[in-house]
């Protein structure tokens, strides 16, 4: 294990060499960091899901041609990847993992959390998804099938969570806070109306 200071120094050395060789420019580095820190994130995915919950025609497009439907809302693929959106219902619960590394739908969810990239999640989501769901406090009855989707560089998965009960007539903007990052990975369900802190 290298110390944090040592790694920071190694990054600075690489940066300084690439700047000196004219292979990168400082503003480009800042631009990339700003993109990931401020513009990509689960707020984008929540917009997509809330739209699907409010607009049946959009939902149909999202399930049949997800990459283009997501671009309709202005969220372009970051790595040229294709998107697959899988729908949770009372009969099927979907959960997403990347067993080989960390592939994740950047355009809609941003960078993955540390647990998603960690060995315990990558190992067990594949072999014991119900056990993993229980760790996240998510109970899925035996009557429902659990499906695990293993992401790769070309295909990124996102879950369309079930629309919570008691949300009929709510606007897209009011639905958005119910859509959490974890519910779009499939490790939890969307929040109930009473669970949202104003």
């Amino acid at each position: 294990m290298t110390s944090n200071d040592d790694v920071a120094l190694r990054v600075r050395a690489l940066e300084s060499l690439l700047l000196e060789k004219g292979l990168v420019e400082a503003p480009a580095i800042d631009e990339i960091i700003d993109l990931f820190e401020n513009r990509l994130g689960p707020q984008n995915g929540a917009r997509v899901i809330a739209r699907a919950w409010s607009d049946p025609a959009f939902k149909a497009r999202l399930l049949s041609n997800p990459t283009d439907a997501i671009v309709e809302l202005g969220f372009e693929a970051v790595q040229g990847e294709d998107m697959v959106v899988v729908e949770n219902t009372s009969r099927v619960h979907n959960i997403v993992v990347c067993t080989l590394c960390s592939c994740f739908p950047w355009a809609t969810l941003g960078l993955p959390p540390v647990w998603y990239k960690s060995a315990p999640y990558r190992a067990r989501a594949a072999s014991d998804p119900r056990g993993v769901l229980a760790e996240f406090g998510t109970e899925i009855g035996q009557e429902a099938e659990v499906r695990v989707w293993d992401s790769n560089a070309e295909l990124r998965y996102m879950v369309l969570p079930e629309k919570p009960a008691g949300t009929d007539g709510m606007s897209e903007d009011d639905l958005m806070p119910l859509v959490t990052r974890d519910s779009m990975i499939g490790v939890t369900k969307a929040l109930d109306v009473g669970e949202v802190t104003p």
């Binding site: 940066e15 690439l18 480009a28 580095i29």
Partner: peptide, 8 residues
């Protein structure tokens, strides 16, 4: 440095 590493 994590953001820098990703950007590089």
């Amino acid at each position: 440095w994590e953001g820098k590493a990703l950007a590089l």
